[in-house]
Design a protein around this nucleic acid. Structure first.
Length: 430
RNA sequence: GGAACGGUGGCAGAGCGGACAAAUGCACCCGCCUUGAAAGCGGGAGGGCCAAAAGCCCCGGGGGUUCGAAUCCCUUCCGUUCCGCCA
């Protein structure tokens, strides 16, 4: 959520920053917010003056009653009642304005970082690095889509997944299932030097899903369990960000770093019919997420660190990859600055997004009310949040099946995964 | 799911209709004392709204009674214990 005070002190700056996103209706919401805020402040100051009067009279009533001056007390009580009635009306108006303002503010996106590249769409995202590990040419045996390879090897059984759960669900079998788990284990182990491992809940409250920005705008993308007013998490970012929601953290605790494996659930409401084959897009998938909670001055370095860590995982697997920076027109609504890691999959002949690393400035933390306190200073400040996929399992799984496919149809496994594969170094037909 | 008890500042814990932003203890910060430390003594210190003074709000959340609510009533959530059920 954007800081309302910014709207009062630097509306032009906010307008300029937001217009870089290229979403014209956002500027209209901005005007709505300013109007509501102005009116709200008028009402509250009027209301507070009335309250002050009531408080003052009440003190006097107490005094008069102690002095047995009952007639005078009665008279003042009558006056206070009248003021109280007016106060109540203003209070109701203030509450309704507050709620309206909140609803508008929740839909206004974050301000992009000044250095975030300007652009309209994903076509304008600059390549920051790479391609790395990209051979001059791919062999014919690598030009086979992973769904063909994997089905032939018996490690992918989407037909039965669909029978059990419907379309866009996947199922891995045998060493394919082991490989999924191995990738998670690998990603967690490689970041355990600095990140506390969390095993968070997969179902969260409406408040929790609002904090990270999925609600209220993107309710259709999430699975809702209405009977219990819970939502299935689309990423471990959701519970991890809210770990310290409505708490005040000591500055000595920051930056705090967490990582979590979780299943992720997405309705993919807008993607019906896209990427229906294989492992590229599914309603449920595994991912390891890394996340940091920081003071503002620590954030930029952390963003680079998270990106480096995500890159190190992919590089360690030996897959061809590149890093792109997300331009203002393509950025998610909560994002301040972000990078994507893409892996090349020769069988599909496409770049697959396997990690997205983002800095949210104080946008999510304000929604979640995560504050920190500087030792020796009065007051609190809103924290910054950052996160990134350490590793999104299915697409990496797919890229391994395609890049490391051998002429005989088997798939060679990256050496870093061998310790997690029960002795297997490749996957061959049964 | 049923019953009982409880939710107050960083923690512990008093207050149960008026001078309460809230005793006390621990922890914390500053000073004195000391060669240094501990102890002792003196002082300071909650969060939020507002440009800020003033003022207002905050004793789990919401609602009510009252001139006035941490305190009374209703409701809801959370916790603990017991019972029931169950991986």
């Amino acid at each position: 959520m954007i800081d309302v005070r910014l709207l009062r002190t630097d509306l032009d700056g906010v307008r300029a920053a937001l217009s870089r996103r290229g979403k014209p209706d956002v500027l209209g919401q901005l005007d709505d917010a300013v109007a509501l805020d102005t009116r709200l402040r008028e009402i509250t100051s009027e209301r507070d003056a009335l309250r002050a009067e009531v408080n003052d009279i009440s003190k006097q009533v107490g005094q008069l009653r102690r002095n047995q001056q009952m007639a005078e007390a009665e008279e003042m009580m009558g006056r206070s009642r009248a003021i109280g009635d007016r106060e109540k009306i203003l209070q109701e108006e203030a509450e309704s304005l507050e709620e309206k303002l909140r609803q508008v503010l929740l839909r206004i996106p974050n301000l992009p970082h000044p250095d975030a590249p300007h652009g309209k769409s994903d076509a304008d995202n600059p390549v920051l690095k790479g391609p790395i590990n990209m051979p001059a040419t791919f062999a014919e045996h690598q030009r086979v889509p992973h769904w063909e390879t994997a089905v032939a090897l018996g490690i992918l059984d989407n037909e039965r997944a669909t029978k059990i759960s419907g379309s866009m669900f996947t199922m891995q079998r045998g060493l394919g299932a082991t490989l999924s788990r191995a990738l998670c284990q690998y990603a967690l182990d490689r970041n355990a030097d600095a990140f506390e491992e969390i095993r968070p809940p997969s179902l969260v409250t409406t408040a929790t899903l609002t904090a990270t920005g999925q609600l209220p705008k993107f309710a259709d993308d999430a699975y809702a369990i209405e009977r219990d007013d819970l939502w299935a998490i689309p990423t471990a970012e959701v519970p991890l960000t809210s770990l310290y929601a409505s708490e005040v953290v000591e500055d000595t605790e920051l930056p705090a770093r967490f990582m979590a494996y979780s299943s992720c659930y997405r309705r993919e409401a807008g993607s019906a019919g896209r990427d229906t084959r294989g492992m590229l897009r599914a309603h449920e998938f595994d991912k390891v997420e890394i996340l940091a909670l920081a003071m503002p001055e620590q954030a930029e370095a952390l963003l680079i660190e998270l990106r480096d860590r995500a890159e190190a995982l992919i590089a360690g697997l030996g897959l061809p990859y590149r890093i792109i920076e997300i331009c203002t027109g393509d950025m998610g609504g909560s994002h301040h600055r972000s990078y994507d890691l893409e892996v090349y999959a020769p069988g599909c002949d496409s770049w697959l997004e396997v990690s997205s690393v983002s800095w949210f400035s104080d946008y999510q933390a304000r929604r979640a009310d995560i504050r920190f306190k500087r030792t020796g200073q009065k007051g609190t400040e809103i924290a910054h949040t950052l996160n990134g996929s350490a590793l999104a399992v299915p697409r990496v799984w797919a890229a391994i099946c395609e890049n490391f496919r051998q002429p005989d149809g088997s798939v060679a496994l990256p050496e870093v995964l061998w310790p997690y594969m029960r002795g297997a170094t490749s996957i061959s037909p049964k």
